[in-house]
C-alpha cells in the first residue's frame, strides 16, 4: 500500500554518559521506501537504527511503527519502555539484519528461520517449514537447510539472516551494515538479495557503506553527521548537483579508498 507510513521517527536523541550520539533525528518511511543511511563511522547511524527497535533506548523522541507509538516512560532523566510486551511485539514487526549475521549457532539453517514464526508468532510448524523453504530458495541457499551456520560462508550466513528476518513478515526491514563484515567477493550476493527485496516493494532502512546500493537501489539517501541529518534527498540529487559540500566531501573520501 503506497502512501502508508510504515515507520515514523521524531526527534530521536541518545546520549552515552555525557556524549550525545544522536542530537535529534527525524525520519519517515512510506510503504516501499528504501532509505540508505550514510555517514562516517561515529556519525550515529548504527545507534539510530538500534534505537528504532529498542536494542538501544533513545533518551528522548517518539517512534511509530505502522502507526503504533512505542510508549516510553521518562523518569529521573532516563527513559525506558512502558511495556516490555509492546516492545517485543513491535520488534516482531521489524526485521533486523546485523553486520555480524548473529545466526543462532546451535540451530540448523532451517531451525534458525522457523524459530521466530513458530515460537514468537506461534504459527503451525508445517506452515513455517514450507515458508522457510521458499525463503531459502529465494535467497539462493535451498541446499543448506540442514547445515549449521558455522559451516556456511559469511555471504551465505547473511542471506540466511535476511531470510530469518523475512520469515516474520516484517513491516520494515532494518539493515545494520549488512555487508561490512564480508569478504569483498561475497558482498555482491548479499546486495543482490537486498536489491530483489527492494524491487518487491519491501520497506527498508539500510545503514551502509555501499555507495552503489545507495545510488542505484534506494529511493532516498540520508546523510548523517555528528548525530544529525546533515542532508537528505533522492539519490539523483544527492549524488548529482544537489549534494551538500559535506556529503560531497564524504563521498569524495570514499572514492579515495576509505
Amino acid at each position: 500500500m503506497p502512501g502508508v507510513t510504515r515507520l515514523s521517527v521524531r526527534n530521536i536523541r541518545k546520549s552515552f554518559g555525557t556524549h550525545e550520539v544522536l542530537r535529534g533525528i527525524s525520519l519517515d518511511a512510506q510503504d516501499g521506501d528504501v532509505i540508505s543511511l550514510l555517514g562516517a563511522s561515529g556519525s550515529g547511524k548504527s545507534t539510530f537504527l538500534r534505537c528504532i527497535n529498542l536494542l538501544e533506548t533513545a533518551t528522548d523522541g517518539d517512534i511509530f511503527v505502522d502507526g503504533e507509538q512505542i510508549r516510553m516512560v521518562h523518569k529521573n532523566g532516563r527513559s525506558h519502555p512502558a511495556s516490555q510486551k509492546q516492545v517485543d511485539h513491535i520488534r516482531s514487526e521489524l526485521g533486523m539484519v546485523f553486520q555480524s549475521f548473529n545466526l543462532w549457532s546451535h540451530m540448523t539453517i532451517l531451525e534458525n528461520i522457523i524459530e521466530g514464526p513458530m515460537h514468537v508468532l506461534k504459527r503451525p510448524k508445517a506452515e513455517c517449514i514450507a515458508e522457510a523453504e521458499a525463503l531459502l530458495e529465494k535467497v539462493g541457499i535451498a541446499g543448506k537447510r540442514d547445515a549449521y551456520p558455522a559451516h556456511l560462508s559469511g555471504g551465505q550466513q547473511q542471506r540466511v539472516a535476511i531470510a530469518r528476518a523475512l520469515a516474520m513478515k516484517p513491516k520494515v526491514m532494518l539493515f545494520d551494515e549488512p555487508t561490512s563484515a564480508l569478504d569483498p567477493e561475497l558482498v555482491g550476493e548479499v546486495l543482490r538479495v537486498m536489491r530483489a527485496l527492494a524491487e518487491e516493494g519491501m520497506t527498508m532502512l539500510v545503514v551502509t557503506h555501499e555507495m552503489s546500493f545507495a545510488r542505484n537501489v534506494s529511493n532516498r539517501v540520508v546523510f548523517m553527521k555528528e548525530g544529525l541529518v546533515e542532508s537528505s534527498g533522492a539519490p539523483e540529487d544527492m549524488f548529482g548537483s544537489g549534494a551538500s559540500p559535506a556529503f560531497r566531501q564524504f563521498i569524495g573520501n570514499f572514492g579515495n579508498g576509505q
Partner: peptide
C-alpha cells in the same frame, strides 16, 4: 550478538533463556 538477534525478533526474556541461552 545471538542474544541480540533473539531480542530483535521479538523473543521475551523467558523465551530467550529457554530457546537460546539454556541449550548453548
Amino acid at each position: 550478538g545471538e542474544l541480540e538477534a533473539a531480542s530483535a525478533i521479538g523473543m521475551s526474556r523467558a523465551m530467550r533463556v529457554r530457546r537460546i541461552i539454556m541449550p548453548q
